[in-house]
Every structure is written in structure tokens, then in C-alpha cells.
Computed example of a mutant assay.
Amino acid sequence: MALTLDQLRSKYPDALAWSFGDSPELASQLSTLVIAGKKVATCGALLTWNAEASKPQPGGYSIILNGDNRPVCVIRTTGLFLTRFDRVTPEMAMLEGEGDLSLDHWKQEHQRFFQREGTFHPEMELVFETFQLAEVI
């Protein structure tokens, strides 16, 4: 039986709850990659990060929601660091676990995402987060 969001909040009292991406389809696709062990990192625009009230912290937990806004897994943040879009390495792109795992694919898809968000610039600052899968719901 799957745990509800309220039950997970009881189990992980300080956990954040959020979904990847900017659409239900992307949220489900990326959460599936996390559950499969292929996605162990994510990133976001520093401008967006600074505007958020709650932020992941190393050692902290996040309840990941799918495109239906249902909890599907819990991750634990293992690291946070700043980088720039134009300084993302092939190794960093691979950690995100998306597409063919190449830097070219990463740049293409993330540029599209950040353009939709209105934050894209080739030298934009990113918060890069690494994490480990703590629990599958």
C-alpha cells in the first residue's frame, strides 16, 4: 500500500515536497528516472532558487511527486554547488540521467526549460543538486 503525502510528512517531518520539471509529463518522466536509479542530480536557475521560500539542504529529504501530484519516492540531498550553464560538464549532464546522457542533449533540453521559465542565459548561474534515492513509495 502506497503511503500518502501526510504519512510521508510524518515519517520525514522536515521534508520538502515537489516535482521535477514544469509539466505533469516531465514530472512523471523525471521521477521515473529517479526510481530507476538513472537520475541522481538536478539543477535550477539561481534566480529561481533565491525566490523559493524552502530550499533543499545537504542531508535533507524531499518527497518527489509525479505528474498526478502523488508521492512516488523520497530523495536525500547529498550536495549542492553553484556552477554556470556554460560550465556544466559531460559528467554533470550524465548525473541528471536524461535522454542519451550527453552534454549536447542536456544543453538542448535545459536551454528549452530555462527559456520557458524566462531565466535562460548561456552564462546563467545554476544550483546543481546531487541526491540519493532514500525510498520508493
Rank of each mutant, 00 (worst) to 15 (best):
G118P: 06
G44W: 02
L95I: 04
A51E: 13
A93I: 09
L33H: 11
S28C: 12
G21C: 06
L30I: 01
K107G: 00
R87K: 15
E109I: 15
A15K: 08
R70A: 15
A36R: 15
S28A: 05
L65R: 00
G21P: 10
G60R: 03
E117A: 11
I64F: 03
F20P: 02
F114Q: 09
L46R: 10
D68M: 08
T83E: 09
A134T: 10
Y61P: 02
P58M: 06
T42W: 01
R84F: 00
G79F: 01
G118I: 07
E96N: 03
V88F: 12
N50S: 11
G97C: 11
S31G: 01
A51M: 12
A2V: 11
P122Y: 09
Y12R: 04
Q111T: 14
Y61G: 03
G99P: 03
M92C: 08
M94L: 09
K107A: 05
T4F: 07
L3V: 00
G37R: 12
Q7G: 04
T78G: 11
S10R: 13
W106K: 08
A41Q: 00
H110R: 13
M1I: 04
S102W: 07
M124A: 10
L82K: 14
S10M: 07
I63G: 00
C43I: 01
A41D: 08
G60Y: 04
A51F: 03
H105W: 15
E91K: 13
L126V: 08
E109S: 15
F81K: 13
D22N: 12
F128S: 11
E117K: 13
L33R: 12
R116N: 14
V40E: 06
A45N: 08
Q115H: 13
L65F: 03
F131W: 10
T78M: 05
V40T: 14
L101F: 13
P90E: 15
T89Q: 05
L46I: 13
I137E: 10
L82G: 10
L65G: 03
A134M: 09
E117R: 12
W49P: 06
K11G: 06
A15G: 11
N69A: 09
E123A: 12
W106E: 13
D6Q: 14
G44N: 05
V40Q: 05
D14I: 00
E123Y: 01
F113E: 02
L5P: 06
R116T: 10
F128N: 06
S10V: 12
M92S: 07
T4Q: 05
D100N: 13
K55C: 00
